[in-house]
Design a binder for these strands. Structure first.
Lengths: 223, 223
DNA sequence: CTCCAATCTGAACAGTGTTGAGATGCCTGG
DNA sequence: CCAGGCATCTCAACACTGTTCAGATTGGAG
């Protein structure tokens, strides 16, 4: 629609769509703002009425995708919860969803997962990290994660999952069989959770996780 | 040296140095080949006698740094091995070195850790991944890692460490206290190793890690 | 000392992000 | 129904980019 019309209608999201397609085709930097504009059928400068710069467009795409991913993770957790509401099963589903996405759409994942592209004041909802945190809470509530191990546990599991996703998206590690990716992901989640659960028994005598207080980047308070 | 001379002497590594400094100042893309050339005191086209393109220069810098990092990791393992040659202590040292580097030099780390910048046929030696693998072998030899858990364990630990390093370099996670980073890194290594060691007892009945056969990207056979 | 091959320069090309002055046409208020 | 405001878009231009190539320069081999 809006073919040949002077006013486009929804240029902003049309540009985001074009940018997403271009990222998929040629990566984050393999295309120009001018090309995205041309693809939408609009002059290069038109984009500047919706985005302050090319970089802003890319960031906006990153945020849009991140929110989409958060929703996807949440849904996949819910869907996996089918029988018995096993929190560990839900976390494995989350991990599989996260990792398989980064493998199926590596170019977009490379863009999104290096969060430098995410504005600090953007309110992404639901943020993938928040989904993971909520699932860990669920695990702790179910008694499968001792209280001392719960503190900061999200950073351990997040690091492991994020690391696997990034390694795959960047092509630093490859699995011959797609099924192997699922197994590896499952193993990473299981191993990490096992390690976390066992932490309490080893913790006596060392500073414990409490002093490793961490904070996520501020993502609150939309401008 | 070579000030004002027509022939520079060692332009290739001078360009790499300039590129490294520029990456540190303004990130991977915040500078131009022309600026790097100018900084070295040479015309823009001179660079093309040493690098096929800007991208090639960046990749070369990435490889140089990766090899440097591998050497650093190896040395830090050796250094930590002081008393008793405890393999776990060595792995913790490796993790701390890896992570603290990515936090101390985040711009360069961002460039290096996303291996897309690494040519597939480059022979990086010693490659950080190989160092980690060797240390896990050492752990297994010491009997601290059951045989079935050893298989593919490097991908679990690598994912966790790499994930933490990347999250920090990208600023997706921040710790208020530098000491907290060390503790968190130690926790990630310990937790992962604990989880791995405990794997055998849980493994009965599931496919186990054997079918999750993995392979690193080919980095052998220099052109 | 001469000449070659490696090295570097200078000028040029197409394409980039970005800007500002002006054209266009949707929508609101009369 | 129609005037006109205003967001939206176009056009032309700027400085700058990566890259190429014909030619100038020079260290070192014969």
């Amino acid at each position: 629609m809006a073919k040949g019309r002077y006013h486009h209608g929804d240029l902003r999201s049309a540009l985001l769509d074009a940018a997403e397609a271009l990222v998929r085709e040629r990566g984050t930097d393999g295309w120009s703002l001018r090309e995205a504009s041309a693809r939408v059928g609009v002059s290069p400068s038109a984009a500047y009425h919706h985005f302050a710069s090319r970089d802003t467009l890319v960031r906006a795409l990153s945020e849009r995708t991140l929110a989409w991913l958060g929703e996807r993770l949440r849904q996949d957790c819910e869907h996996a919860s089918g029988q018995g509401d096993d929190p560990q099963r839900r976390l494995i589903a989350l991990g599989r969803s996260y990792v398989s996405w980064s493998l199926d759409d590596p170019a977009v994942a490379r863009l999104v997962l290096r969060g430098g592209a995410t504005a600090p004041d953007s309110a992404i909802s639901p943020h993938p990290h928040d989904v993971l945190t909520a699932e860990l809470d669920r695990l702790a509530d179910a008694g499968a994660l001792p209280e001392p191990a719960r503190e900061g546990a999200e950073f351990v599991l997040w690091a492991a999952l994020h690391g696997l996703a990034v390694l795959l998206a960047d092509g630093l590690v490859r699995f011959d069989d797609p099924r192997a990716v699922e197994l590896q992901t499952e193993r990473v989640v299981r191993t990490t959770l096992n390690g976390l659960a066992q932490e309490a028994s080893h913790a006596a005598g060392r500073p414990a996780g409490r002093s490793a207080h961490t904070e996520r980047l501020a993502r609150r308070s939309r401008g």
